[in-house]
Design a protein around this nucleic acid. Sequence first.
DNA 1: GGAATGCTTCGACAAGGATCGAACTATGCG
DNA 2: CGCATAGTTCGATCCTTGTCGAAGCATTCC
Lengths: 224, 224
Amino acid sequence: MREGPDIARIASLVGDPARANMLTALMGGTALTASELALEAGVSLPTASSHLSKLMEGGLLSLASQGRHRYYGLAGPQVAGMIEAIIGVAEAVGPKRVRPGPRDAAMRVARVCYDHLAGEQAVAMLDRLIDREVLLRDDSEIRLGPAAASHFSALGIDVEAKARRPVCRACLDWSVRRSHLAGTLGAAILDKIIAEKWARREKGSRAVVFSPAGKREFENVFLA
Amino acid sequence: MREGPDIARIASLVGDPARANMLTALMGGTALTASELALEAGVSLPTASSHLSKLMEGGLLSLASQGRHRYYGLAGPQVAGMIEAIIGVAEAVGPKRVRPGPRDAAMRVARVCYDHLAGEQAVAMLDRLIDREVLLRDDSEIRLGPAAASHFSALGIDVEAKARRPVCRACLDWSVRRSHLAGTLGAAILDKIIAEKWARREKGSRAVVFSPAGKREFENVFLA
DNA sequence: GGAATGCTTCGACAAGGATCGAACTATGCG
DNA sequence: CGCATAGTTCGATCCTTGTCGAAGCATTCC
């Protein structure tokens, strides 16, 4: 008999199909209401409500009440990381689809991971930022480099803005198996990409699709 | 309604207490027989057998038959990584014990992670090996450095031994939140530590306890 | 060959939990 | 104040799944 952290409790929360669908939906990073999550999960509102209270009690979700709306979101990056890890295993051991569908391909190129960009583009971006010493990597720790202030202020991103969350964080990418940039800076960059309309979020998916012009802009700024 | 990798299936496999105990036990890296796992999980043999076949079917375990013994082990590093991630969340959201027990402290210092060393000692070791250019880090990729051959051959470890598994791999440490060394090299180093009796494995736990003399030896070789 | 050990399969039972309809509470709008 | 919308709670139902004892295979040892 073992003791220790109750991993069965956490895993069984993710282990119900309805709840797994909800969590997957929330990996998109935007908080959703109970009814939206009910729809995502394909269950009735009462059922969804019951699941949501369990996830809350389990500490996997955060809740923001706004008037009569209640927005549920993932509790934090650590939870998101766990889901990514489970997705990785499910992809690996799951029934290998002969050909990954077009949506899969898009997901591999660029997708939202909680609140920042992930996928090939994101991994390439982080590599390039480190090459140019905009960022410095020290193991899984990422810090601002000498060129950071000038580079990001030109984009209208204030890297000095303080928050409880770290500015930079490395996040393991399940498709590329390398790190991409998370933290407030990662989130700010994703915001920028969407705000500038370089890319748009695929409806009902985590995929992020760049427009031809937007892709050029993005590569110009981050991959040059 | 969503589709995609069946994460609920994987998570629900881990979500049963008996199975979670088995998987946690296997995080120690040594393959165990069905009866040993039944004992670990605190269930009868038939029950354990049923769980094991489910875990096999789910692709989380590997099986090696040796005569009338059947040794079950984790299917691979990716599965181990997923379990670590779940442990991390469970630790974070779980009922915060006021004081981590002595075993927890020992686990933080040094423990077995699948087949290699983890914990503060392991993270420090990797840092130092990279400083000394025995190893080279390139993002989450770790490669052998110029000083590798001489350093490891002096220890009787053949870094050129080829296997399907990569020689070096970075593995995220849940207690320190930084990477430590995995891969065949990580496994070989752990073997060395145990073989030289620098440390012994705590019975029925993942903790690795260094002897005073062994600790000096280890630090001499890897942290100097 | 026969006994012993390791493990799996079968059958029956019990319990947990997912589900939904209906009733209830809360917020916003006119 | 009254109606509409968002969400939770309650109760009943039903089904999945974990559980173990007993019996059945397989392998090794004597």
